[in-house]
Nucleic acid binder design. Structure first.
Lengths: 241, 241
DNA sequence: CGGCGTTTTTGATCCAGGTCAAGGTGTTGC
DNA sequence: GCAACACCTTGACCTGGATCAAAAACGCCG
């Protein structure tokens, strides 16, 4: 008990408090025993933008929680055309349960902190902890819903609707509680190239659409990264959400 | 025991044998008790193409197994632009666990047989049968993988690659065991309009690309629906899978 | 079989967004 | 402070696929 308490008061809580934000992490679904076991194999890492966390060539042997930053999931055609197929924000879970190879590359889009643990240990725990399994199921369904919204965007929206949709997505993520109509500021977690790969456009088109939004007085841009949206509701209308 | 055996030999087995094909159905994960309970509220339906099974306006109060045919999941923008975001083949499970409203419309693309049961009953069983929950989790992950392949297609592939990808998808589905290189025939489960909504194109472009494939000697088309692919490997190369 | 609505194909034209090519703007290190 | 580099914007032009219009093929029913 003292030992457990010890661990619980030193390493694990820090790990878990961040995992637990917004109740989408993994740790809160585990018993103290499992946490102790897991923490033995856990490694926290801080990685720079551009670092590849999982390559589509690899076999997957670890999972991770995103503690801070944004991870982009990409797919690439043989000739280099690329598409971002998912964005993982803290505290999302990173990994593909029940499968040993990935067809997806995961790469840090911003400076990222992750907390990684071996697939084996967690897979064992999934079987024992229905609550954990349920959370992972929920995240999968959630990602599926997002992917489908995104498919509508990729298949049917115009360039200007796409860029507005993207800004709206980031705005909502940066402050989920924000007023529907009103002003909101945030830093873009992606470069223009990433935004283009996200939206299925080129960087030139993204840039032109941002310029248009700026000239229309809907947003302000500082240092290419910091965005202020003056009227979220109007942006949303442009996005055709 | 006799009663159970009775039921098991009359209604349920028929239902389950179809559900169970390719091990993606729901029934095989249930105990006999649960099957008996479920079968009390189960209704099989045969529906014509175009019938809406779930509307995005509705609240969801039932699940279903697709026993035969193809169901398309669509999203529509206010101005009518539409995108197919999922295709459910038999014996897929149809429904969104843990949520009471859908942002998606499910519509029969071909004549379809479904076996529907109330959400409530199954939700209760999910909690009691980890095996069932696990299967649904697997299907969700599977659909997520498919959605992401699809996003790459929608974001980055050309019209000709898209149409080839589509034919390849249907070919694989119609005979998963088929030779990689060789001939294969099948009926398209979708109209040109559906194919266009699937691929993010217009019907004219789909038609032109099919004509091109025909003129290139890669496929033959009879009655607008029956397709023969002469060289699956060559099609796959065109698709840039 | 022939008439009629629906679906598909084909053709002509147009335009949103891609491509190519400079030029700006920040950021980092010396 | 300024050189070097990475990133972003702007402009000119081009093209793949959309749009509009019409003809052809199919499917259904009397």
């Amino acid at each position: 008990m003292t030992i457990r308490q010890d661990i619980h008061n030193s390493e694990i809580p820090a790990l878990c408090r961040s995992c637990e934000a917004r109740h989408r992490g993994v740790c809160g679904a585990l018993t103290t025993d499992q946490l102790v076991e897991l923490s033995r194999h856990t490694t926290k890492r801080k990685v720079d933008p551009g670092t590849v966390l999982v390559s589509d060539a690899d076999t997957i042997d670890s999972y991770a929680n995103v503690l801070a930053g944004v991870v982009k999931l990409t797919k690439t055609l043989p000739d280099g055309r690329q598409q971002i197929v998912g964005l993982q924000f803290a505290p999302d879970f990173l990994g593909r349960p029940f499968k040993h190879e990935s067809s997806i590359t995961a790469e840090a889009a911003t400076p990222v902190r992750v907390c990684a643990f071996p697939k084996k240990s967690l897979d064992r725990m999934i079987e024992q902890a229905p609550e954990l399994s349920h959370r992972l199921h929920l995240q999968a369904l959630n990602e599926l819903d997002e992917a489908r919204d995104w498919m509508l965007m990729l298949g049917r929206k115009t360039a200007s609707e796409r860029v507005a949709s993207f800004l709206h997505l980031i705005a909502r993520h940066s402050d989920p509680e924000a007023e529907i109509s009103g002003e909101i500021s945030f830093d873009l977690p992606l470069t223009r190239a990433d935004i283009a790969d996200f939206l299925g456009l080129t960087i030139e088109t993204v840039s032109r659409q941002l310029t248009k939004l700026r000239k229309d007085g809907l947003i302000a841009v500082e240092n290419n990264r910091h965005i202020t949206v003056f009227d979220v509701a109007r942006l949303e209308r442009r996005a055709n959400v």
